[in-house]
Structures are given as C-alpha cells and as structure tokens.
Simulated scan of single mutants.
Amino acid sequence: MKLRTYFVLANAVSIAVLLICLFISYSEMLLTQAQFVWLASVTGVVGLFSVFLHFILTKPIEKSLRLLTDETRQIAAGTFNAEVPLIGPSEFQTLARQFNDMSANLQASFERIRSAEQNRRELVANVSHDLRTPLASIQSYVEALQDEVVVKDDYTFKQYLATIQLETVRLAGLIHDLFELSRLEAGAEPFEPEPCDLDSLILQKLQSVALTIEQKRLHVDVSIPDRMPPVNIMPFKIQRVFANLLENAIRHSPDGGKLTICAEPHREHFIQVSIKDEGEGIPHGQQAAIFDRFYRIDPSRSRQSGGAGLGLAIAKSIIRLHRGDIGVESEAGGGSRFWFTLPVYSKPS
C-alpha cells in the first residue's frame, strides 16, 4: 500500500468513526426529522470534504518521497549528479537538501577515487619506465663483463664498472625519493621544526654550487633583509626544497644569465623565498601540473638531464608539511620565478 493511500484511508476511517458517533448523538438529542437530516447532511459533507482535503494535501509529500526514491535508484546505479527539488513540507525540503549535499559529497568522493586510481596507474607506469632504463643498462654492462668482452681492456673495464656504479646510485636515489614522497603524502613524516636563519641556509647552498655557477658564468643577485626573523622549519628538509629549486634554475639558465634570489616578509607571520631565472620559461597551461609526480615539461628528457620528476613533488609536500605555500610564475621564453613561504618562528609563551 502506498503511503498516500495509507494516509487517506486512515483519515477516512477516523472520519467514519466520528460520523457514526455524531449520528448516534444526534439520534439521542430529541431532534425533529428535518433537523436530524440537516445536521447529518452537513456532517457528512464536512467528512467527505476532510477526506478530499487530506487527499490533496498529501500529494506534495508523495511527490517528494517519489523523487527521493528515484534519486536513490540513480545513486545505486552510480549516478550522483542529479538533484532533488526542494518541494513539500519544510521537513521534506530539509531532507531533500541534505540528500543533495550527500549526493554532491559522494560525487566528489568518487571523483577523488577515480583520480587516485588514474594517478596510481600513471605512477606505476612512470616508476616502471624510470626503473627499466638503469636496470637495462646495468644488465647489459654486467653481461658484457660476464662474457669477458672487455676483460683484456683495463680502461674499458673500469668504465663499465663506473657506469654500473652510476646507474646503481641513480636507482638508489629514485627509490629513496619514492619512499620519502610516499611518507610525506601519507602524513607519516614527523614534523619537528626549530628556529633557523634563512640567510645562512641560502648562503650554504650557494657555496655548494659555486663551481657550477662559475662554469655557466651566471650572475647571482641575492636580496635578504638585514634583520630577517628566524623561521620555524626543519632545516634539512627546507634545504632540500631550496636546493631543488636552485639546481633547476641553474640547469635551465642560459650561459651568462642572471639568477635572482629573494627573501622577504609575506603576509603576517610568513617569509617568502623566491628564485628567478632567465631560462626558457614554462607554458601557462603546464604550470598547474609542474608539481605533480613524474611530471616533465619535456617528456623526452632522460633522467640524466631532467631527473625523475619527483623533486618538485617532494618540495611541494615538504612546504605543505610546514603549512606554507609553493608556486611558480612564468611565461614561455620569459624565465621562471619559483617561490615558497615559511612560517616565522615565535617564542612559546
């Protein structure tokens, strides 16, 4: 039995019981026949009108329930983009509104699941590709050594061993990067910040790449305020972020180009660090994906020249661990400016 039929039938039964009681009461009131007929007629008409009115007023309730039922069928079938109209009594409108919110949340959840599955497939494909190349190289050189192809040539023999060692180091680096990135994204990396002066961290890294800068004849302009407040960071992690951005800027800068490194206050209780180069720049359509895992602007670049595509993804996760932001401003042919923000250290009260 439908709910609306149940409501109307219940109303009709209650009205019928009431009419019977009224008719019995009328018969005991010593009314004339005309008075009895008149009262009975009015009571009957009022009872029928009540049943009809109940039938009309329950229609919006039935429609609301029917629409909700149809939407639950669509959700069961995997469709989440439909929306229930807000009709009927206020309680049913509230139910419909909450149902729409639930449907939207389910849609967003399944989109995230689909995206995660797609990312997982891409991750497996990229990892397989980046592992296959050095493994194939190691295998070929080992087979050559086993076949004693170069055993009589001491120079070539040492070259083969050096190549095997280099490829092994690259494999270890890729595995380490994957492990670190997985820990950062899973929230398993402990956050133990301490006060640190950014100027010393920046200068230390510049000293470590001084030879590369000299070889490319780069001009480096560093702008840091004299009284820069300390930041609340894990120095080793932030040094890795800065090193990644600096090495990328050096790699993409033309010989004789200019690097601009700047640290300045940014918003309240934050410091922004930026590195600007005069390289080829990044097309606007690719800037949103530049911090994705294994993303390369030029997919043809090998690991030797462009890395595995994990450095910026790790940098993004480290900055987020510090509750900061990271981004890039660039134009094709106009250089790039990478920046990140870090919280200022405040003494515990």
Rank of each mutant, 00 (worst) to 15 (best):
Q204D: 07
K63W: 03
I164P: 07
V124L: 10
G257R: 04
Y295T: 06
L201W: 04
E264A: 14
Q74S: 11
S349N: 07
Q146A: 15
A76R: 14
A116W: 03
G281R: 04
S317M: 05
K276S: 13
T43L: 07
L245F: 11
R73F: 08
A16Q: 09
E214N: 14
S103P: 03
F99L: 03
G187Q: 08
A77P: 01
P265M: 05
Q304Y: 11
P190L: 02
L178S: 06
R217N: 12
L135I: 11
R112C: 01
I326H: 08
I202P: 09
P283T: 04
E278R: 01
L131R: 00
I318H: 02
A125N: 10
A136E: 03
I202F: 10
E185H: 05
Q98K: 14
C262P: 00
Y160L: 07
A315Y: 03
F242S: 09
S302F: 02
S253C: 08
E192D: 13
G281V: 02
I290T: 10
L57Q: 07
S64P: 05
T32G: 15
N248E: 02
L31S: 06
A40G: 15
Y141S: 14
R170V: 00
P265V: 03
S109L: 12
A40F: 10
L48S: 13
K237A: 15
I87H: 04
T58Q: 04
L39Q: 12
N126Y: 00
S137L: 03
T133G: 01
Y295L: 01
V209T: 11
I87T: 13
Y26F: 15
L312E: 05
E143S: 14
H284T: 04
F157Q: 11
N100P: 05
Q215G: 02
E83I: 02
V151W: 09
I319E: 09
V222L: 14
S253L: 03
V37Q: 15
K59V: 09
H219R: 12
F80Q: 04
D325H: 13
L198W: 02
R251T: 09
H322A: 06
V328N: 10
S300Q: 13
R97S: 14
E122N: 15
A77E: 12
T163M: 04
E189R: 15
P348T: 08
Y160D: 02
W339G: 10
I282C: 06
Q139Y: 13
I213P: 06
I175C: 05
N100V: 01
A313Y: 08
I318K: 09
W339Q: 07
Q304W: 07
A210N: 11
R301G: 13
L201H: 08
Q118S: 14
I56C: 04
W339T: 04
R217E: 10
T94P: 00
F23R: 07
S330R: 10
T212Y: 08
V37N: 15
Y141D: 13
E28L: 11
Q98C: 06
P229Q: 06
L57V: 09
P283C: 07
R320L: 06
Y155T: 09
V46L: 15
F92I: 00
A136W: 00
Y345G: 08
I202W: 10
G324D: 05
K59R: 12
S208N: 13
Y295D: 05
V42L: 15
A188K: 13
G333S: 11
E185A: 07
K63A: 10
D199C: 10
S223R: 14
S90R: 14
E280P: 09
P134I: 02
L53N: 06
